[in-house]
Amino acid sequence: MSNKHTILSALKQSALDQHAMPAMDVVANNDDLVGQFNASLNTVAGTLHSEGGLAALQQAVDELIQQNMQVISLLDGIKGNRQVPETAHDLADIDYAVIPGDLGVAENGAIWVNQPSHRVTPFICENLILALAKDNIVANMHQAVKQVALQPGELGLFIAGPSKTADIEQALVVGAHGACSLNVYLY
Rank of each mutant, 00 (worst) to 15 (best):
L132C: 03
D102S: 11
I111F: 05
T121E: 05
Q83R: 14
D93Y: 09
N38A: 14
Q36I: 09
V84D: 11
A55Q: 15
N81M: 11
Q36H: 14
T43D: 12
D90C: 01
P100E: 11
E107I: 06
E86G: 11
W112E: 04
A131K: 00
I137Q: 05
S40Y: 01
H118F: 07
N140Q: 08
G104Y: 00
A106I: 06
L75K: 15
M69A: 15
L91H: 10
N114M: 06
D32E: 13
H118I: 07
T43W: 00
L103A: 10
A110E: 08
A88C: 02
C125N: 11
V61S: 05
L33F: 05
I99S: 02
H118Q: 09
Q143Y: 01
D76W: 05
P116I: 06
E63L: 06
D76C: 08
V98C: 11
G80V: 05
D31Y: 10
A55W: 01
S40M: 02
L64D: 10
S73K: 06
L75C: 09
G109S: 08
L75G: 00
H142I: 05
Q59M: 04
G80C: 12
I137F: 09
M141A: 04
I65T: 14
D90V: 06
Q66C: 05
E86K: 13
T87A: 12
P100C: 06
A144C: 10
A55S: 14
M69H: 13
F37L: 10
G53P: 11
D76I: 06
D93W: 05
Q66K: 15
L64T: 01
N114P: 02
A60M: 03
S73D: 07
N42P: 00
A60T: 12
E126D: 13
T121R: 06
V44H: 02
I94Q: 12
K134P: 10
V138C: 15
A60R: 09
V113F: 02
I137P: 10
M141P: 04
L75Y: 03
L64Y: 09
I99R: 00
V61M: 02
V98D: 02
Q66D: 15
M69Q: 15
T87S: 13
N140A: 06
A55T: 15
D31W: 01
Q66S: 14
Q66I: 04
G101P: 03
D62C: 03
I99F: 01
G109Q: 07
I72W: 01
G80Y: 04
S117D: 13
A133Q: 12
L75H: 11
E63A: 15
H89D: 14
L91F: 13
L41R: 00
N68Q: 12
G109Y: 00
